[in-house]
């Protein structure tokens, strides 16, 4: 079910502003790929281009190719909505739907797409997804309470449960732990290692240790200069990046010797 992603010569624009330039990389199925780099170098922009969330912003567009298991994501006959059903996303700030209960939040993807499902099947899906997100034991007695009433870490796991409930092939996570405390962060890292059995995961993080702990491969993005587009400077197995990177810039960034 997990899928392979190949990106070639990808340029990403906001109107006339080129935010990201010339990205080439391949993401293996059933692995965690981490993206690191200074703020504003285009990590979020690149991540959002992988499930065409990028297009939600007026004037935003891409040039180049993103291929998932042989299918061109930006082909003229591809519906971005279908793309997003296959490639889910978790955001930096937890964003459960405030009008919905915990239960409804989990099944939101199914309900909003008006897929008809028996109540029992839904119940089953909720339990499976919440267990998958390591949240089941904490909320099983209050499934009908508003999702916004949970703690930050719980909300983020609820959002993960919501994302995996639609059975995507790939899960994109944009700094999913940056708004959370260390304990919740660990809980989510554990969760990621479990989830990679079933999904391809791409995660943006500012936390070097996190990248080193959870990922197989790491990509380092950097800016050539102010007003210049961001570039993928180095993409290698995580071990190599953190012990013996090819690029001087990567080493400087990782060791904190960065301007």
């Amino acid at each position: 079910m997990a899928k392979r992603i190949d990106v070639s010569d990808l340029d990403i624009y906001y109107g006339n502003f080129k935010a990201v330039e010339g990205v080439n990389l391949s993401i293996e199925p059933r692995s965690i790929t981490a993206l690191i780099g200074p703020s504003g170098c285009g990590k979020s922009t690149f991540l959002r281009s992988l499930n065409r969330m990028h297009e939600v912003i007026p004037g935003a567009r891409v040039e180049g190719k993103v291929v998932i298991d042989g299918q061109d994501l930006y082909g003229s006959d591809v519906d971005p909505v279908d793309v997003r059903r296959q490639i889910g996303m978790v955001f930096q700030r937890p964003n459960p739907f405030p009008t919905m209960s915990i239960y409804d939040n989990v099944v939101a993807g199914v309900r909003l797409n008006s897929t008809k499902m028996k109540r029992a099947a839904l119940d089953d899906l909720v339990e499976r997804s919440l267990r998958g997100a390591n949240l089941w034991t904490e909320v099983k007695d209050r499934l009908d309470r508003p999702g916004a009433g949970l703690s930050g870490g719980q909300q983020q796991r609820l959002c993960i449960a919501r994302a995996i409930a639609v059975e995507p092939a790939v899960l994109l996570m944009d700094e999913p732990c940056s708004a959370l405390d260390p304990i919740s962060t660990l809980a989510i890292e554990d969760l990621m290692t479990e989830l990679k059995e079933r999904f391809t995961i791409v995660i943006v993080t500012h936390n070097m240790q996190q990248a080193a702990r959870v990922s197989e491969s790491t990509g380092f993005f950097n800016l050539a200069g102010v007003g210049q587009p961001g570039r993928l400077v180095e993409f290698n197995p995580t071990e190599k990046i953190f012990s013996n990177p090819d690029q001087k810039a990567t080493e400087d960034y990782i060791s904190g010797r960065f301007g």
Binding site: S8, D9, D77, D79
Partner: peptide, 17 residues
């Protein structure tokens, strides 16, 4: 490395009914 000169603009995304 540069294989193709990408088309200048995105094809209009398909809209569902």
């Amino acid at each position: 490395m540069t294989l193709t000169s990408a088309p200048p603009a995105q094809p209009r995304p398909k809209r569902r009914p």
